[in-house]
Design a protein around this nucleic acid. Structure first.
Length: 982
DNA sequence: GAGCCGTTTCCTGTTT
DNA sequence: TAAACAGGAAACGGCT
């Protein structure tokens, strides 16, 4: 058994150079921001902005800190936006690994910067950040420690810090095992740094990055470049939270310390009410016991309300917290509730009034800052049982019972939307698992990114290696993490603006099936993958008959999945197969699964809320609920639906359900609303139709691709200031455009490619809904651009590194490269996969992502297979691939592989084998020794001994000659062995 | 359907 | 000690 497959290791080294020095064009790469917080029994972030003192070794676990952006002297009655900033200390608790996804493998990363501002104290070292100082210390340690600590002293992505390794200079935070830690703070160093304790810090913005692992500085440079890294990142502007500003000169009302922090203030001042204009999700994490305590202190019904289906919920009283601005040393925090502001100690269970009183900044900070946050608490563990009876603070449980309702009422009165819940559970981790330390640790072992190991290659270049184990969860499972969704809300909108400088986009790098699905290595059959939408873990895998039957496994729905309470087990799946998914009403419209109700800013919806293709409404009453007001009928080409699902089912269902819609008066039929569907537009989208295109169109039509009026119901809803739900958007824009299927300039596709693109476009349409589609460029952009943007957004939401094998910028354009297009399609299905329900509807229940892509594409033509040696040559001929493979002596045919895993991954993608490893690939390469396509590499002094190969110069010459003559050279039967022994 | 070819997969052992 | 290398063996899938 191969120990690891789907290695997704990527060396950050090559691009790090560009990162620091710019690429060949002198452009400096700017990583993308993404937020990530670490899972763990030990909380990373706290629901309390002040953190938890209960956590050993770290008293300040709040990673987020609201900062008022408006002058505090302004009208206190006027709301002002708040920005969330990141506490540098929290960095210690922040996982820093790099996203790197090859379907099953992913790594998420954040790179949190140090302090860039200080609240009210002078910086002793203005030029250096807090972390730099820390890092400096670490570097000094390293210097003293000698080379034996060279890896340890540097904190890079994926550095592994064991909780047992309390002496590690990397991190003073008693992290859980295998967690990564970026901060090199040492506890002794911290204690020895007076200003650390006394300094009032206004933390920097959250500056996180997302992108290729190659974009990330190598471990050895991460410290010294942290600043630039941060500077090159983009600030995360949290969603505004409006708060009636408290009087600066007045003492905060209702300051309580720990003993009373859960008490409900007696009076409530409207002037101090909290106005939450926008959902303000924020990643927080609680230690299990604290979490439980908090949740118990919250309104149980409210928690349960959203948790069942990840619904929108109100922030509870406990969710709304103020904190003294930037006073990291302070031990007191304020809580603002509807009734006023209160102060608590850092932790509700570890009151330290003494600290609070002794806090040197307490008095002033209360005056200076009134920061408010609607902390999105961690609901994951609620279902396991927070009950009022077990509330630690019994004072609050009863009183708070109706609290959310009151707040909801007030919010609604202000025309505000309750905050969307967010969780802190990282991707790939069942939320339920977070409850149990045992399960949690178990899952963490399997899901979190383990630390990167470094090695020094023959030329002394440090290359980070990333263990791939533990990342065996399907992306969907990762993607469905509400943590990601919440994270996405905070940062992902930035991502689309991010620009990667490197566009290593050789066509050879794009291949079908290159993104693997979740591969269970123990599965002996080809389709080991798992549909990413299936939020479950594989427990069993049974070979049932043919290889395509891969359903013999127990489905464990993700805790965050609506299926959680209705797990689909093997029998269900088999049953579905037997009956071919009968057209019974089996689903209801989930209000949270509305395809078009969110804007792109809520990019998490790209993952979370695919546009319901079919709304099987069993209970008509549900449609009359407040959540189901509007139904539209986007015009989805039925041909596509037929191909990907059960056409009759869909049509019948819609026909049956539509007339009974209570909102029929607000429903417009597709015929009325739309004059052109995406695929309809396809035919008229290309004003530059060449004869070839006309032929393609004719063939297209000849294939009986009739884009009929569709039968898809899309539920739309929006909130207005008055709380009304209105139409968000009326679809029909297809008629106003030339569609993105084939915009001008992109009309050079064959009929097959055109058909493929149309399928994909409709697939996008179906899964995302038109509104989201529009937000990614539809219909102005061509399909491949839309697809890429959608993938880009979804990957951003999911915290997945790059949507492609190599980093592509947001403006990436596949052009005519259908392999690239296919790659993106694959990724789309992986990351942006719809819910399980949709999977069923499309008839993909038994299919992996690979199989789905194959199913889609096989009808549109095959992918040309390329021999390995040719593949390598193509890579070598493209200097953009130099970070991966490059010529050492081209005339001699000597080349060097810099990143084996990357290369193997590319090869696997090109060959449609997601399980490719360098080991296998090298084995295939060694067969070329026999045919003399490759030759032994002469031992040269300046030539590394490993990862250096040599092409037979005759092969290169022949290929070059073939190129000149424009003839093809398949290479099949190639044998340059003059003494062939074959 | 057989055979060829180019891997792919797994393995053991060796070298770096 | 891990990674890379080397190569045997069997199997697989595409192609002819």
């Amino acid at each position: 058994m191969v120990a690891c497959e789907n290695k997704a290791r990527e060396s950050p080294m090559p691009l790090y150079y560009e990162y620091c020095h710019g690429n060949s064009n002198g452009e400096v790469h700017r990583p993308q921001p993404i937020v990530w917080c670490r899972l763990g029994p030990v909380p990373v972030l706290s629901k309390f902005p002040g953190g938890h003192r209960s956590v050993i070794g770290c008293r300040r676990h709040s990673a987020f800190q609201p900062v008022a952006t408006k002058s505090l002297t302004s009208d206190r009655t006027r709301p002002y936006p708040l920005e969330w900033r990141y506490k540098p200390e929290a960095e210690e608790n922040t996982q820093v690994t790099w996203c790197c996804s090859a379907g099953t493998n992913y790594r998420c990363a954040i790179a949190v910067t140090g302090v860039d501002r200080f609240w009210d104290l002078h910086l002793r070292n203005p030029g250096r950040t807090y972390l730099d100082k820390i890092s400096q210390g670490a570097e000094k340690d390293q210097e003293h420690g000698g080379r034996e600590h060279e890896d340890e002293g540097e904190i890079g992505s994926g550095d592994y810090v064991s909780s047992r390794d309390t002496n590690s200079p990397k991190c003073d935070f008693r992290s859980d095992e295998s967690s990564t830690c970026m901060s090199p703070v040492h506890e002794s160093m911290r204690r020895a740094t007076p200003q650390y304790r006394s300094r009032t810090v206004k933390s920097s913005y959250i500056k996180t990055t997302c992108g290729s692992i190659r974009d990330f500085p190598t471990a050895e440079h991460v410290t010294e470049n942290r600043n630039s890294f941060a500077q090159n990142s983009k600030q995360i502007h949290a969603r505004p939270v409006y708060i009636s500003e408290l009087p600066r000169s007045q003492p905060p009302p209702n300051i309580h310390h720990r003993k009373t922090e859960y008490n409900r203030p007696e009076s409530f001042s409207e002037n101090e009410s909290i106005l939450i204009n926008k959902p303000t999700p924020l990643l927080v994490s609680l230690k299990d016991d604290d979490k439980e305590r908090w949740l118990r202190s919250s309104s149980p019904h409210n928690i349960a309300e959203h948790f069942s289906g990840e619904h929108v919920t109100l922030p509870t009283e406990d969710d709304i917290i103020t904190k003294k601005g930037g006073n990291m040393a302070a031990t007191s925090i304020c809580f603002i509730t509807e009734q006023g502001r209160r102060t608590s100690t850092l932790s509700p269970n570890t009151a330290n009034e003494e600290n609070a009183r002794n806090s040197p900044m307490e008095a002033t900070s209360d005056e200076r800052t009134t920061a408010l946050s609607a902390i999105i608490d961690v609901r994951d563990s609620v279902q396991d049982g927070a009950t009022p009876n077990t509330t630690v603070d019994n004072n609050s449980s009863s009183n708070e019972a109706d609290y959310p309702h009151e707040l909801r009422r007030r919010l609604k009165a202000y025309g505000m939307k309750p905050a969307v819940i967010a969780r802190d559970t990282p991707r790939g981790v069942s939320t339920a698992v977070a409850v149990s330390a045992t399960e949690s640790s178990d899952l963490q072992e399997r899901t979190r990114s383990k630390g990167a190991r470094g090695r020094q290659d023959d030329e002394g270049i440090f290359i980070l290696k990333y263990p791939e184990i533990g990342d065996k969860h399907p992306l969907c499972e990762q993607s469905t993490s509400s943590m990601l969704r919440s994270a996405a809300r905070n940062h992902t909108r930035i991502r689309s603006k991010q620009t990667f400088e490197e566009t290593i986009s050789s066509k050879e790098q794009y291949a079908p099936n290159e993104y693997s699905t979740h591969i269970d290595e123990e599965q002996p059959i080809e389709d080991k993958g798992e549909s990413p939408h299936k939020s479950y873990q594989l427990e069993y895998h049974t070979k049932i008959g043919d290889k395509q039957n891969l359903l013999g496994r127990r489905v464990l729905p993700h805790a965050s999945s609506p299926l959680q309470n209705n797990p689909i087990v093997d029998e269900d799946i088999f049953e579905y197969r037997r009956r071919d998914y009968p057209g019974k009403c089996s689903r209801t419209v989930n209000p949270t699964q509305i395809g078009d109700q969110h804007s792109l800013e809520d990019r998490a919806d790209f993952l979370q809320n695919p546009c319901p293709v079919v709304t099987h409404i069993q209970n008509e009453d549900k449609r009359s609920s407040e959540d189901c007001n509007t139904y539209l009928r986007p015009n989805i080409p039925s041909e596509i639906i037929t191909e990907i699902g059960d056409r009759e089912l869909i049509k019948n269902e819609v026909v049956r359900t539509e007339p009974s819609s209570p909102t029929k008066n607000r429903t417009q039929t597709a015929d009325q609303q739309f004059t052109q569907s995406p695929a309809d537009s396809l035919h008229s989208s290309c004003p530059l139709k060449e004869p070839r295109q006309k032929d393609a169109q004719q063939r297209h039509e000849g294939q009986n691709i009739s884009f009929q009026r569709s039968t898809v119901l899309v539920q739309l809803r929006d909130w207005t200031p008055g709380g009304e739900e209105v139409f968000v958007q009326q679809m029909g824009a297809a008629s106003e455009t030339k569609l993105g299927a084939d915009a001008p300039g992109h009309c050079l596709f064959s009929a097959e490619d055109t058909a493929l693109r149309s399928r994909v476009l409709v697939l996008l349409w179906v899964l995302l809904g038109e509104r989201r589609l529009r937000e990614v460029g539809y219909p102005a952009e061509p399909v491949h651009r839309i697809l890429w943007r959608a993938v880009d957004v979804c990957c951003s939401v999911a915290g997945v590194k790059s949507a492609a094998a190599v980093p592509l910028n947001a403006d990436h354009d596949c052009g005519l490269d259908m392999l690239c297009f296919r790659d993106h399609t694959h990724r789309f299905l992986e990351v942006c996969a719809p819910t399980r329900e949709h999977w069923k509807q499309f008839g993909w229940v038994s299919l992996t992502v690979d199989a789905v892509v194959r199913k889609i594409y096989d009808e549109g033509g095959r992918i040309e297979r390329v021999m390995l040696w040719r593949f390598l040559l193509n890579l070598l001929e493209d200097p953009r691939n130099a970070p991966c493979i490059h010529w050492v002596q081209r005339d001699e045919g000597i080349f060097r592989i810099l990143n084996t895993d990357w290369l193997a991954r590319l090869w696997g993608r090109r060959h449609g084998n997601p399980r490719m490893t360098y080991e296998k690939m090298a084995r295939a390469m060694r067969t070329y020794y026999r045919s003399k396509v490759l030759q032994p590499v002469p031992r040269l002094r300046n030539l590394p001994r490993k990862l250096v190969y040599k092409f037979n110069p005759a092969v290169i010459q022949k290929v070059a000659a073939m190129k000149l003559s424009s003839s093809t050279f398949s290479g099949r039967g190639l044998n340059y062995n003059t003494n062939s022994n074959k």
